[in-house]
Design a protein around this nucleic acid. Sequence first.
RNA 1: GGGCGAUUAGCUCAGUUGGUUAGAGCAUCUGCCUUACAAGCAGAGGGUCGGGAGUUCGAGUCUCUCAUCGCCCACCA
Length: 845
Amino acid sequence: MLDKKYNHKIVEENKYDFWLDKKYFESGDLSKEAFCIVIPPPNITGKLHLGHAWDTALQDIIIRYKKLCGYDVLWVPGMDHAGIATQAKIDKKLKDMGKNPRQMKREEWLKHAWDWKEEYSSNIRSQWAKLGLALDYTKERFTMDEGLSNAVKEVFVRLYNEGLIYRGERIINWDPEALTALSNEEVIYKEVKGAFYHIKYMIEDSSDYLEVATTRPETLFGDTAVAVNPNDERYKHLIGKNVILPILDKKIPVIGDEHADMEFGTGIVKITPAHDPNDFEVGNRHNLERIVVINPNGTMNKNAGKYEGLDRFECRKELIKDLEVKNLLIEVEDITHNVGHSERTGVMIEPYLSKQWFVKMRPLADRVLENQKDKESKVNFVPARFEKIMNHWMEITYDWCISRQLWGVHRIPAWYREDEVYVGREEPKGDGWVQDEDVLDTWFSSALWPFSTLGWPENTKLLQRYYPNNVLVTGYDIIPFWVNRMTFQGLHFTGKRPFKECLIHGLIRDKEGRKFSKSLGNGIDPMDMIELYGSDALRYYLTTNSSRGMDFRFDEDKMKSTWNFINKLWNASRFVLLNLEDFKEENFTLENLSLEDKWILTKLNKTIKNVRKNMDKYMFNEVGSELYSFIWDNFCDSYIEFSKFNLNNTTKSVLHLVLKSILQMLHPFIPFVTEEIYQKLPINKESIMISSYPIYNKKYIFDEEAKEIECIINEITNIRNFKVSNKITKDSNTIIEVDKKYESIFKNILKVSDEIKKINNSKKLEYNSPIIKVTFEIENKEDDVNIKEKLLEEKNKLIVSIEKRKKLLSNENYINKAPKNIVDLDREKLKEEEERLKIIEKELK
RNA sequence: GGGCGAUUAGCUCAGUUGGUUAGAGCAUCUGCCUUACAAGCAGAGGGUCGGGAGUUCGAGUCUCUCAUCGCCCACCA
């Protein structure tokens, strides 16, 4: 028997271990159809946050649902080394231990990295366990493990041989704190207060000057030209002349280039090919020298002359002072502009000329765009609008900088010997080869996740059976970093989309709609929520209170009401189980079913149908409200109440069937408590996990009878309402006049006693409807509510409604064009309203 | 500049292909310790679905337009 109180801690204890022991999470039943999801691998940098809880709960729901539906499900667990983020954490730990990570040997540092991984991966696994995730741990992978490392090498070498990976000097986004190059996706643009510095560039052999406006005066030392638009009447005569670069007093040419926008600023732009991507292009067109003036750590280098060693922002201040002294500064115009910042370290990005490895994106992206035109083989986003985000990215994509000046894993498989370059899976033979010091962007390995986890590049059985994955679940913020890259790598290396569907959810926010962040201190640890309300409540809350693709505001009060719902389920189950103690078999015939039985079976089957439909569309919020109202409003508030007066074996069978079905439909959402209750059912399997999802059965749809009960429930509400508004108390005498077959329901539910009490100074009040008349004999008090007023109000409403409906039904267009069932419904409604009106008019006489 | 989303009850949000009187949770008011549940039961109040126009027999839902808020992408010398 169930405990008297629902206690989530007791319920959730040991269940996960039980499932693991029974190997329920393990895939591989070849007699069934395969269904596969790979988890978005969390970083091994720390704890899981609410976003992970949401994301993984969604996946667990899909996995458990599919399992109950008879699929061979595989949910691949795994974790990601996460490049910069992990390096920073490990370095910090080493520094705290008094060690200098950069003075260690790479191998030694990697040992620490693996220790770190062991520690954090077990933390993460225990959090997954708390969340109840049905992950197949026999297939767990890590982006640093051997198989995945091989896949990374294979991909690099093949792309290189195909000419899709190259090494070159380009302007890249440099993070002066992490001391590494970044991809464009890792740069966040933020509005910053800055200034336009208007500087005089004196024209050679002239007292005249060109007014150059720049936001980055400190890059002036790298200027190798000044550009004007070749069509600019103001300046085009100067093209070919020289100007004197301030401070350095160096001659640089005035060039004509379309890049200079006549409308913008002064129309004159300084060209710094080593520190600006546009200038780099201009430099290429005009064969300009590229002069790097900033060191990797953000300080000025020797090309900055006396400013060498100063931080780039310090240099700016000093330089401006000096320019002012020399009367070369015209004005400082305050502006706000967008400046790129590192996603990880937050510092301002330095556009920087550097030799890096790149993936040539155009051909890969075009393949995705082509594939997305094919309904049969495209990645289907849910909701569909997110496809645009991917497609747009593919359209405007540019080459992906994949080398990172970090430690860690996935060294670039390239070796150098003087001018020779060797790219291969293994170190080349012969002496003098030195491997590239850099590692690959963490997303380079993540991009292979859907197939590398299944054994690619080997053509393994797993790969054949579970690839493409059925669905990938992730937040919309990850589309550019990950979804896009998995898609082009998947298509390129397997010829197939990585997953058939991509279910997108939003971001989780706090109650006020702010992002969770360390600086705001508004973080909520999902483990704390589980402690307080249970994993089931957390999962149900997150997944049924959110809709696809939309952001989510986390409100702890709502967690509480979710807990209440589970408590309600618990208590309803207790009621059923208390009454099923001697229950042996589920046994009912159509003939034995009462009206109420037929009603709840009809409701149940309609619920099953809708729930399945919405589960398949990932509309879990719809499933949630469907189940909530079926369980609470229909099953608890009505059917259980009806059953109390009619507890025969048929009723018990129906209670058993309905409860079991409820548990099975709820199980994907709240696996722990449903397992607990299921195991207490008189007829069950060893675990709800190996039972099967309810199937819609047309045989149990009884529309006529269901309608009768709906009508009765409606009458019960009306009568109760009548009692409240007329202050009718329990002490009154109640006489019911109704068709014999409904008599017991009304009497039991309304708790009508056959005994007639003696009431002094009594008066009679009548409730009247087409199907029932109830007479209340109550004590006569002066302050009684005027019934006539209420009736008049209702009468007026009815008259308006009847008129509206009559008008509608006399509209030929409506009769001809609207579907028949809608019209019939209106006719029926009209009839009912007219009947009710008659009764009211009679009362009012 | 391009794209996307939001605007529905006091609050937070649903509302799938247009179709009964627009829903839920929380909050509010009234009455109940009725033997599964007071973390509950019963009843009630509360919205001209951001504004305007259009299509339609019928619009929260489709089209156009305006407004406000938010996000993404691009550019910004």
